[in-house]
Design a protein around this nucleic acid. Structure first.
Lengths: 262, 262
DNA sequence: TAAACTGGTTTCATTATTTGAAACTTAGTT
DNA sequence: AACTAAGTTTCAAATAATGAAACCAGTTTA
């Protein structure tokens, strides 16, 4: 139904996800316990993925872990498909200007993926942050992106949120979330009102194509100790400039050198 | 034979690699030109991969690019399968101590993948470096790892090197490379004698398990303007300490919390 | 020492999926 | 209106995936 299911490839990738979801090397038997597939089938999947170096096998311990080929592919993904490389300069500038942490995120399925992060004060090494996923319904970037999703796509995304109550401002129902999304859409920006973590607030703006498609979102995060929503709101014009610049870059970019043959 | 070929999954991953190898979004027709598969078959693969969000499709332009799901998976790969997270502290320390750029690399197939990098002077943002691949035959880390590969594995790896002459110290034959690997094996460390880029030299040491399996390699890079091979050689004891510490971490690590159920 | 177990690997007839030539559909030319 | 290029769908034949069961170590238990 939802998401998975295309033939053999889909199943193999499910297994890959499963391995990745353990945050440590796993034994075959451990996978088997959680797997819907019979022993022989799962075994063959794991073999195939290992041959393909999507999984790596530790012979000393008999464990499987996500393979290095993924790291290589991801490098390509990050370079080509994400906004990060072409947004880099803009984000550096923004982060320097506002003196707060800036996040660049994109939507994957129903989750938010942080593809870049710039911390004005102490620049955290990236990979530890890039690729990190978070919930969409209780983050500034998540809501900013959802607010601009076409209705047909929004529905399923709303369904798949967990609506876990992290704090007492967390949205816990589709309805209340949908209301806020409308507000965000009319304002052009949205907040995280300590919905995910107490004391942490942010403003977020979507990054849209000329055709209005959602590319990603940009946020500036701070703490209630340092500022408040009004303070963040005052940054909106500055952030909007960056968002538009990134959108511009993105539309210029694609096809750096389209061949002119035949 | 070598590498590819496991059933449908293997083929799909080949297509994924192909998309990744263009460093830009590609049209279906462009893929078709380079693909061994007939139109309908390729089409179905691309569809499947897109459904699975391993590829992303830009409807405005009709192009495909590696998908964000890869970024998420890679995060897991990097965290679990690579030495980077558990080597981080050690590398920080080493880089600070020697005041030069430190690379942490692993072997994928016949290529070197840099999984982490620490630059004493200006800390380069990571993702742009992590995941980057390089040739094995003309890099310090590559040679250090090959030197400790079991013969059965080494053969194919040696075959697959390009032996492109980057500089006049580059190895251009299996034989000369094999000779150096022997030397490295008996010394316990190896150099990059400007084999890849003029003026760039490095010392590299392998990171091995207790059983002697190659986990990765560590290198300290400098320029001929700042030092020479002897200078780098004097760092070997210091680097060795780090290599051993990382190996130790790696063997301690696996199974942080093995479940004790039934 | 044997018997039972655990964790992993292989077999093989059955079943379901993939395959790809060709036909079709748009949308853009001439 | 006829032609083309690029992308999408069909469908019978060919191929690959499936999984119950058998098998093969090592380990533990009796």
């Amino acid at each position: 139904m939802a998401g998975s299911g295309d033939g053999t490839v889909g199943k193999a990738l499910e297994v890959l996800d499963q391995v990745a979801s353990f945050a440590r090397p796993v034994r075959f038997s451990e996978l088997l316990e959680t797997s819907p597939y019979p022993k022989a089938t799962l075994y063959r999947f794991v073999q195939t993925l290992t041959n393909q170096r999507m999984l790596s096998y530790d012979p000393d311990r008999g464990t499987y872990a996500p393979g290095v080929r993924l790291v290589r592919l991801a490098h390509a993904a990050w370079q080509t498909a994400s906004l990060a490389p072409l947004a880099r300069a803009q984000i550096d500038q923004l982060s320097a200007d506002v003196g707060e942490t800036v996040h660049l995120a994109q939507l994957d399925h129903a989750q938010v993926i942080y593809v870049d992060k710039r911390n004005a004060a102490n620049p955290v090494p990236m990979f530890s942050q890039a690729g990190k996923v978070g919930p969409a319904y209780c983050t500034g970037v998540g809501k900013a992106m959802m607010a601009y999703l076409p209705d047909a796509e929004l529905g399923p995304v709303l369904e798949q949120q967990s609506y876990h109550r992290f704090t007492d401002t967390t949205h816990t129902s589709v309805d209340s979330l949908r209301n806020e999304l409308n507000d965000i859409r009319s304002n052009g920006y949205g907040f995280d009102r300590e919905e995910h973590e107490p004391g942490i607030i942010c403003v977020a703006l979507p990054i849209l194509t000329e055709t209005g498609r959602v590319l990603g979102a940009l946020s500036v995060t701070s703490t209630t100790a340092r500022t408040n929503l009004a303070g963040l709101e005052s940054l909106v014009p500055r952030i909007k400039t960056t968002a538009q610049a990134i959108s511009q870059e993105a539309s210029n970019w694609h096809f750096p050198a389209a061949a002119t043959n035949t």
